[in-house]
Design a protein around this nucleic acid. Structure first.
Lengths: 262, 262
DNA sequence: CTTGGTATG
DNA sequence: CATAACAAG
């Protein structure tokens, strides 16, 4: 069972650049896309995603944010946003929660596109409120009997190993002390960073590189795309990879690929 | 003496597409550019126009309209807009009037970028007011002892020979009856359409093609770029050409080339 | 530096 | 359909 998360940075541009071929090559069972920046009806006429089923959660604002979850497995349940009494507005289309048949149980895939705080102070404050809500909301899944994956572009590099230039980015949104501390609390609350578990503590690899300068060529990146698992999902981990070369032509993010033993 | 008028549809894009090589090939003595859509300081660092002297008249609004006149001859006089007591505002950078040494007299080159009326009713009304002012203002040059050229993108096709589909464009801005009638009045007031004089009455050729569809490949164009001459300039006409192929890669307009015998 | 929206032609 | 400004990342 292959789960892939990928920030495609505009699905229309990604399609022009060969998204379909990459999806065919990666062959995910479930594909979690972030930053689609389109409504479904804006996609090229006649174009079809190369997977059986799709769920879309675009932002209300045109060309902005938005998520989509594609699957070759049935969707048993579909939810958007943080479904709860303490509902945080999801008009930016940042969460899709789907449930799929998996072995003799069900697998939950929570597709997350966490707000960026790099543009304005106001957006950083929005991000910091948002992640607190996410932490609280996600808590309900950690002790779940069924396996749950919390995946996506979390827009935060956790440790100094997750960023090429830690000291130079101490004051940069995405590597602020309070964001890294939040990430530690998220893991302490019962989520497991599958990629880090698989590769162990080491410098890199990264999943995102700025478009400015020669950041990607010089591998001056950040690891901000994650697959986190609850305790029930953890034993199923078979392999974890950041497809560093694969995504190169399609997006400024690389796809993160997790295989689960069914 | 070679005078060239060319709507470059964004000089920065034109430079990327090889404007410099075309200018070198065409070798104008005086080059009248319209729709430069840039301030001089926005041009690529280190880039130099391939001619000795330049005069710029950008619009106040960034990325919009604007004219420039380049020359390998001295500028004896430089004016912008319709210089007169009845001054019409030239904040859109639509007129440059230059005077150059020529034989034993001087040549006046009036570089015009006439407003388009195709976007909004309000702009069509602006255009219709503007052309009346232009007709009045230009009147002062017709009886001038020195040769005067009134050149540029006039955004009006005069006769049915100047447009590929006259009947289909009866209600299109640029071929409206009142615009064509204005053009007739302009010619009646003492201006001579040098290109038409040289090639005679015939269908086409055109100087502008829409970017939509295959208009240029199908030669579905308009002749809206002109060099008009007063009586003093008329006897100097040596040749007139629309460089249909030359401009192809650079702009949606072709350069119009006039050679005058000195 | 890149996407995508919008205004303008 | 193309240029360029802009907002966002």
């Amino acid at each position: 069972m292959r789960i892939v998360t990928w920030n495609v940075n505009g699905i229309r541009a990604a399609i022009r650049k060969g998204l379909d071929e990459f999806v065919e090559r990666i062959a995910p069972d479930i594909l979690l896309l972030q930053e689609v920046r389109a409504f479904e009806e804006q996609l090229p006429k006649g174009w079809k995603p190369g997977m059986d089923e799709t769920v879309w959660n675009p932002a209300e604002k045109k060309g902005y944010s938005g998520t989509a979850t594609w699957a070759n497995r049935e969707f048993v349940e579909i939810g958007r946003g943080m479904e709860s009494s303490l509902d945080r507005d999801d008009s930016e289309g940042r969460i899709i929660h789907t449930k799929h048949p998996f072995a003799n149980t069900s697998l939950h895939c929570i597709n997350i596109y966490l707000p960026s705080g790099s543009n304005k102070e106001e957006r950083q404050l929005y991000k910091e409120g948002w992640i607190e809500d996410l932490l609280n909301w996600a808590q309900r899944f950690t002790d779940h009997d069924e396996p749950v994956l919390l995946c996506g572009d979390l827009n935060i590099a956790h440790t100094e190993n997750d960023i090429w230039n830690p000291s130079g980015n101490r004051f940069t949104s995405g590597f602020l002390p309070q964001e890294r501390e939040w990430f530690s609390r998220l893991l302490a609350s019962g989520w497991h960073d599958l990629f880090r578990i698989k590769v162990g503590e080491q410098k890199g690899p990264y999943s995102w590189w700025s478009n400015r300068g020669q950041a990607r060529a010089k591998d001056r990146g950040w690891r901000i795309d994650y697959v986190l698992a609850n305790a029930a999902a953890l034993p199923m981990l078979a392999s974890a990879e950041i497809m560093r070369e694969g995504g190169l032509v399609v997006s400024d993010h690389a796809p993160v690929i997790i295989d689960l033993a069914e």
